[in-house]
Design a protein around this nucleic acid. Sequence first.
DNA 1: ATGACAAGTGCAATCGGTTGCATCGCATTG
DNA 2: CAATGCGATGCAACCGATTGCACTTGTCAT
Lengths: 335, 335
Amino acid sequence: MNRRRTGGARVKATIYSIARELDISASTVSRAFSRPDMVNAKVRERILATAQAQGYELNRAARGLATGRTGLIGLVVLDITNPFFPPLVRAVERAASESDTSVMLLDAESGGQKAADQLKRLSAQVDGLIVASPRLATKDLQAAVGSTPTVLVNRSVRGIPSVTCDNSAALREAGDHLVELGHRRILLLRGPAGSWAASQRTNAVRSWAQHTSADVELVELGPVEATYEAGWHAAEAIAASGATAIMAFDDYLACGVVGGLDEQGLSVPDDRSIIGCDDVLLARTLTPQLSTVTAPFEELGARAVTMLSEVSAGGAPGNQKLSGVYAPRGTTGKV
Amino acid sequence: MNRRRTGGARVKATIYSIARELDISASTVSRAFSRPDMVNAKVRERILATAQAQGYELNRAARGLATGRTGLIGLVVLDITNPFFPPLVRAVERAASESDTSVMLLDAESGGQKAADQLKRLSAQVDGLIVASPRLATKDLQAAVGSTPTVLVNRSVRGIPSVTCDNSAALREAGDHLVELGHRRILLLRGPAGSWAASQRTNAVRSWAQHTSADVELVELGPVEATYEAGWHAAEAIAASGATAIMAFDDYLACGVVGGLDEQGLSVPDDRSIIGCDDVLLARTLTPQLSTVTAPFEELGARAVTMLSEVSAGGAPGNQKLSGVYAPRGTTGKV
DNA sequence: ATGACAAGTGCAATCGGTTGCATCGCATTG
DNA sequence: CAATGCGATGCAACCGATTGCACTTGTCAT
């Protein structure tokens, strides 16, 4: 591998070894790879052929040193084991590979100072950052990313481009659906304090409850962490609340609630209805399938990558808003 | 950021800018970072202080060019959306960060030629590769990784160090548990063709069935893909098989079976018992919780990283075997 | 024929570290 | 006191690409 095949000597293939073999300058070889249109088609072809023969692989470090860019983007997720993130990671990775860019993954796993440090360290190594659902305080976040081109996913912060998902219309629709099914007392299980998405969703549901023509009574519980366990533990209070339907911050939490309600002897959707958010894997593996608001993961990831390259190019894309779609499934039923 | 604070000129901080300010040579500055023990403690401290003051960040590309190493390892997973992988990714990432190494993630997502190409491309950019559960044919795999230091997770291939999880004892235990509960006709739902883990588990279960003193009758179904849908669709055949208990290739599949059985009007564990494997998130979010064989994700990831650094250092660690543990939970009941 | 212009190529400097080797000062030893 | 050794440092040559600039050719209009 990576060695010359012709001639006895086994040397690492570089643009120089190629140049020597073809008796041209290394600049031309370099350009054949980095700006193909600048070199004569015939020459380019001979270069490519020789490169192939020598097993040449471009040395990213050398390029990086010369250009100041690494060809890497950092993807920071709050918690890779949260089912929200894997589809996003996949989407980002695919989109990035389109532009010959690789993804460095950072599992931030905590919102504290450590997360900020990790972020800062990472940011020195990459061309840009995609930060998904960070819990960092606004100013810490701004400080941590510094001047590194950054795109936020699922959070909006002044001065940093972002791509978010606006679920308010879908949540209204979900609420209306519950009303239609006869629910009047509805419990909002609020997501984590410090989560931008959680406050967005809370506001959306509150606003819906306030403006709907039906006389719904909105009960709130939380904030709670977005985990199965938290949902499970919330079930007792939920059962006691008298609400017949629950709108949970996300699917993960919602699944926990379903499990916890079961423990309380309550079944879904017969005794209680519940609606999640995001449409993660869990939503479909739940029996019955979870009624939820689907998030466009693929699109979120792809846009983030596109926007990031715009930022890197000096642009300042605004904040893109996508929309969730309400998907009624098996966990919503009549009162 | 990254600029000198002292003196009007704003230049990028490098070992040279630090050296100049302290009137020492750049070599010493370099050594202060890469081999601290080689430089006088006092000098080192002044260097660190100046670096701090100038906002110096080591340029990885430059180091990489000089040393030939990138400080990156590539982590290749079969399918990041499969709940098996996120915990592993996290474990690898944490272990890697211990040694100041970053992780490049590649979601292989297919077993074909494309996967091989991706692998090859990635391998040129990293110091080493951790490849989890690849489906590539043995020789394609060997060819793709070439001479890049590689550690396999959850698969064993001649000539490549690996860390795997031996579940045979745990599966025997699981089988015995089923027998104890009165099950005699047990269905083995086989995992994907081409999956090393699947064949291991199949063999383990077969061997158990053959050697157990009880007169169990083992029915086999599959191979099927390791997805929820596949499990769901298998449920009909499972229901018809007359088996009262199912041992599924993994949890993901098992959850699908539970969902599908529900559709068939069969409930778990009352009508059928089922045991999964791996103990992924889904196992605990299922109601009732899935009886399964837990995999030591943390350990798998950590070992893989350790072994990889051994390989990089020229060693040839063998194949490490960890063990799963049978965890009876809610999906196994009396006949 | 002449100048203008464009395309294609080469030269050489540059990016920012690392490291083998030489050197120097100083302490230890005979 | 000279010789030896060692720890600490500097010198300078790399690592392998990119790129501004200069140069050569060929084409085309004048």
